[in-house]
Amino acid sequence: MEENTDIWEVFIQSKNGLAHKHAGNVHACDKVMALENARELYTRRNEGSCIWVVKATDIVSSESEDSEAFFNAANDKMYRHPTFYTMPDGAKHI
């Protein structure tokens, strides 16, 4: 069987000023091919103004099964949210 080609994850910025968003992936041998394949596959209807491609093997991800422990540190810090605070009646624009 033939050797697999690399998988590249594709991120698309739909409009100038917005964040790039994950769209999917493509197979490609190098970065130019990855960009061109991503353009053909994900932006045939003007869905993008900029594309990032990243080799899938270069992405580091947290493990979903450990997510509880991993994100635990934020659980008891409700004071980081604005709704934690009591505002006096009648106070406006705050």
Binding site: E2, E3, T5, C29, D30, M33
Partner: peptide
Amino acid sequence: GKWVREAAKAYA
């Protein structure tokens, strides 16, 4: 298409 895939890999 095999030679195309091989050529692309060799070029990379």
